[in-house]
């Protein structure tokens, strides 16, 4: 088991005598946790994420337990002299994949994000959204232990946004940690393990008592062996599970987690039978 990533009394300022952007930050990112960071423009969210990603070192305080990390910046420059697939293959190898594995992962992620058509397009000719897809793909292809997303959804189309939410669910289900900033309150709604707000240069955990709106849900009807108990991975990913008959479960699953749950059910030993999957009709999306 890898250790938690810990920030202890960390602060960051630019220049030797610059004003403190962040100060006295204590934060622990445990494996499998999804952490949301909020704050106004210029509050220091991006600085915090750069510290967590290991791009900047804290000016004071300590940071311990660096996992294998990937980072998606908020704006990705197309000013790189590579094709999309060429850049991703290079980055895949930097993330520790072999040449063939990197090329395959690059193709898969471009396909999943709906940018396969641009694989051989020079980066300089990509649209803003497509280059953001490349930025997202470079972070995901190494299956990082810590994924840091700085407004990674900005500029993506609807399908790619949903795909990135599913990718985040996959990472946390696989034991990876994800820290993200996004201005849309419905982003991964109800799935975060903790929400922090950056205010006046310090980090405060938002009280979990506040009502958290839940996102779209999927109802999965699954039949296991008569004395079957739900796989642990499924248990961790569902909003609620109700046993309707011996071994038969009616699972309410947050939409981004649906693939993770179905994969866990179908690959369990012995495998479960999935009787039906329907989207819950809940237009307000406020009920839990």
């Amino acid at each position: 088991m890898r250790p938690d990533l810990c920030l202890q009394n960390a602060g960051r300022r630019y220049g030797l005598r610059g004003p403190w952007v962040l100060r006295g930050v204590d934060l622990t990112v445990a494996p499998g946790r999804l952490i949301r960071v909020e704050g106004g423009n210029g509050s220091g969210k991006s600085t915090l994420l750069r510290l967590l990603a290991g791009i900047d070192a804290p000016s004071e305080g300590r940071m311990t337990g660096r996992p294998r990390t990937a980072y998606v910046p908020e704006r990705f420059p197309p000013a790189l002299p590579f094709t999309a697939a060429g850049y991703l293959t290079h980055l895949g190898r930097v993330h520790g994949l072999t040449r063939t594995a990197a090329a395959r992962a690059a193709g898969e992620w471009l396909e999943r994000l709906g940018a396969a058509a641009y694989a051989d397009t020079p980066m300089a000719r990509l649209s803003k959204g497509s280059s953001q897809k490349v930025a997202v793909a470079q972070a995901l292809l190494g299956e990082p232990e810590l994924l840091v997303l700085d407004e990674a959804w900005t500029g993506l189309d609807t399908e790619a946004r949903a795909e990135l939410e599913r990718a985040v669910a996959e990472r946390t289900a696989a034991g990876g940690s994800v820290v993200f900033v996004d201005h849309d309150p419905r982003r991964l709604a109800g799935l975060s393990d903790a929400t922090y707000a950056v205010r006046d240069g310090s980090l405060v955990e938002r009280a979990s008592a506040e009502p958290v709106p839940s996102g779209p849900q999927v109802i999965v009807d699954a039949q296991g062996p008569p004395d079957g108990r739900l796989p642990a991975e499924v248990h961790a990913s569902v909003s609620s599970a109700e046993e309707t008959a011996p071994g038969r479960y009616r699972l309410t699953v947050p939409a981004p987690h649906s693939d993770v749950v179905l994969r866990a059910l179908l690959t369990a030993r012995p495998p479960w039978h999935v009787a039906s999957v329907v989207q819950r009709e809940d237009p307000t999306g406020s009920r839990r």
Partner: peptide, 16 residues
């Protein structure tokens, strides 16, 4: 030569 954002991605992966 490397744009800032691209440098950030590489720095996160291997250390700045």
């Amino acid at each position: 030569g490397e744009p800032d954002a691209a440098r950030g991605c590489v720095a996160a992966a291997v250390g700045p």
